[in-house]
């Protein structure tokens, strides 16, 4: 034993180069930083083509923001026809998903027993996991016929209302789970304070817990909008194939995403105005969703700070 110990007697605590360790750390760092390059690549590629689009002598900002017909092939560049339909479908979606999502979050976090939660939560998760193209099928072949039955022939085969409604159902689980997180992050002390004043459970939930969770719910709303604006397949299938400047939700109108999907699905040659215009639209989409996501993240992290 003594002998064994002697072998260790002289030791050196100085740093020794560990090439393997350093190489691994380098590789891991590259993996970590790659996401930054993804973002840069998105900005660069979308920006480059969008620059080419706006650089075209035919395209002017006045035309882009000042007119309402979009058909780059024949020199019409009014983005509004795509933007309004995006806004209308998103608005309808939020009209559905915000109240329903918030109400289900309130029920799940304030009222549901553990048993009820264990049944109800997975249903929402299944709803969240269904591919959007399936929702598109549902919108076109189930919801649109129902709308036609109710409202008659004013409802076109492709229409924004049906796409928006189904998009609302699709976003509901997201709003619900984010709101539920916000509600359950409200400290118990606050609920107890309310109960101690002689408040009922309902008064506590609605008048104390809900206002306290409001910023978290706001973040859910913003993420929901971002999701609605970027959603493609439901609108591509059910909202219509062709730009249409209208405010009538029962009419067909193509959204920004739907337009990109339809045009890029065809035979598209590089270096045409059709090609670059898609990138200009995609850049707008990216920037809008980026800003919405950033705001939402800020709101959520402030909200967490407040209650930790």
């Amino acid at each position: 034993m003594q002998e064994l110990k002697n072998q260790f007697k002289n030791f050196d605590l100085h740093k020794k180069p560990r090439i393997g360790e350093d190489a691994i750390q380098g590789l891991l760092f590259i993996a970590g930083i790659l996401s930054i390059f993804t973002t840069l690549a998105i900005v660069y590629e979308l920006g480059k083509e969008a620059w080419l689009f706006f650089g075209d002598p035919e395209v002017t900002l006045a035309k882009f923001f000042g007119t309402t017909r979009w058909q780059p092939g024949i020199g019409q560049f009014g983005i509004w026809s795509l933007v309004t339909s995006t806004l209308i479908t998103s608005f309808i979606a939020m009209l559905i998903s915000l109240p329903l999502g918030l109400a289900s979050a309130l029920f799940l976090s304030e009222y549901a027993s553990l048993r009820a939660r264990s049944i109800l939560k997975p249903i929402l998760e299944v709803l969240a996991g269904i591919p959007t193209v399936v929702y598109g099928y549902f919108a076109l072949l189930f919801v649109t016929p129902i709308l036609k039955n109710i409202f008659g022939d004013v409802v076109q085969v492709y229409n924004m209302a049906s796409a928006g409604l189904v998009m609302g159902i699709m976003i509901l689980p997201l709003i619900s789970s984010m709101s539920e997180d916000a509600l359950s992050a409200v400290p118990r002390a606050l609920r107890e304070g309310a109960y101690a004043m002689g408040a009922t459970k309902f008064e506590t939930s609605i008048q104390v817990v809900l206002p306290a969770a409001l910023s978290g719910i706001g973040a859910a709303l913003i993420i929901g909008i971002s999701r609605a604006v970027g959603e493609t397949m439901i609108v591509a299938v059910a909202a219509g194939a062709g730009p249409n400047f209208t405010f009538d939700p029962f009419q067909a109108a193509e959204t920004m995403t739907g337009h990109i999907a339809r045009i890029s699905g065809g035979d598209l040659s590089y270096n045409t105005i059709d090609y670059t215009s898609l990138f200009a639209i995609a850049l707008m989409l990216f920037l809008v969703t980026l800003v919405l996501n950033l705001i939402s993240q800020q709101v959520v992290s402030r909200f967490r700070e407040r209650y930790e």
């Binding site: 993420i223 970027g230 990109i260 990216f286 969703t289 996501n293």
Partner: peptide, 8 residues
């Protein structure tokens, strides 16, 4: 990036 629309 997790929130960027898939079409982008």
């Amino acid at each position: 990036l997790a929130g960027v629309p898939s079409i982008v």
